[in-house]
Design a protein around this nucleic acid. Sequence first.
DNA 1: TGACTGCCTTGTCAACCGACCAGTAATCTC
DNA 2: GAGATTACTGGTCGGTTGACAAGGCAGTCA
Lengths: 180, 180
Amino acid sequence: MVAAVAVFAERGFEGASTRLIAARADTTQGLVTYHFASKDDLWRAAADHVFGILGAAFETGPDEQPPGGREVLRRFVEANAAHPEVFHFIVDAGRHDNERMRWLVDHHLRERFEQFVGFNDASGIDAATTYYAVAGASSLIFCVGPECRRLTGADPTDPAVIDAHVDLMLRLFAANDDSS
Amino acid sequence: MVAAVAVFAERGFEGASTRLIAARADTTQGLVTYHFASKDDLWRAAADHVFGILGAAFETGPDEQPPGGREVLRRFVEANAAHPEVFHFIVDAGRHDNERMRWLVDHHLRERFEQFVGFNDASGIDAATTYYAVAGASSLIFCVGPECRRLTGADPTDPAVIDAHVDLMLRLFAANDDSS
DNA sequence: TGACTGCCTTGTCAACCGACCAGTAATCTC
DNA sequence: GAGATTACTGGTCGGTTGACAAGGCAGTCA
């Protein structure tokens, strides 16, 4: 499953082969199609897996206060740094109007978007533009890691870079929110 | 060429087939490999094409003033809205440390990045985080158009949405720059 | 003990992939 | 107008793809 997430994120749905995923997981292609009836099913399971990890980053412990806006944003950026695969799933699926895109929206993105709208009481077009601005600004640098290293010299897996990006996101998107 | 750009953007390098590109351009696969020795060469030609279009959006006419920071940002967002394929090329190539990524950085992205660093006199880690924040925030909504429509109801090809996104980007990234 | 079940391996299938090649027709050069 | 160059077609090649089928092989229950 970890292998499937990695390969789908690295190569996209079309570019990922069930044989490569199987090899990465040290099994055979036959076994993959035994456990997951089709490549589509495997992709959905991989998406469930990686979005589950992301969601866990926002869970509140039993004796914790629900985090404020700044803390949520910090966790969001750090989760993107730790799991850039999420962004690849979103971009890979989001550009086609097909069944996978609709499934991803209905099963994972809708919930996230409505949480976001709840935090920032925006609506309509503003909600959409703000949501995608936050998502894009927070995620891109971590999702093109090799490019970023070659282009800028900065390594987005370096904690110093992650901290700098968190600070920038806080300055950009949480300037007038000092809760948490 | 327009067909190649579209297919590479829609399906990524691995997912795009020379046969599909040929069909989209109403020719044969044999002709594609005649004009472009390999799929890699075709990809590079497509990248040159689409980055050329993007670059033209920033050119200054013979009797124009060079645009100020706000105007450059506006043009950048509008160019991303008109040509979301650029972002797909970047994300598709940028996640691997391979020859295509290095070529794209050296032939197209380096120049853009250094122009950016010139405008915003940042350096080191700050330059990197700011660059990717601007790029991600400006582009994402236009690159996952079908998803955005289903998720938020807003259509990122709608001029009203584009204008709203331009305004948001100006508020976020050009708050203390009132030139132009 | 013998039938049954779930997990897994191996092999095979048609479809598709990028690359290549022989052959053809049109255009250009002298 | 003969010869050379260029543009293009159709077909074919080895290799890869997702899906499927047949069989083995432990474990379980009657």
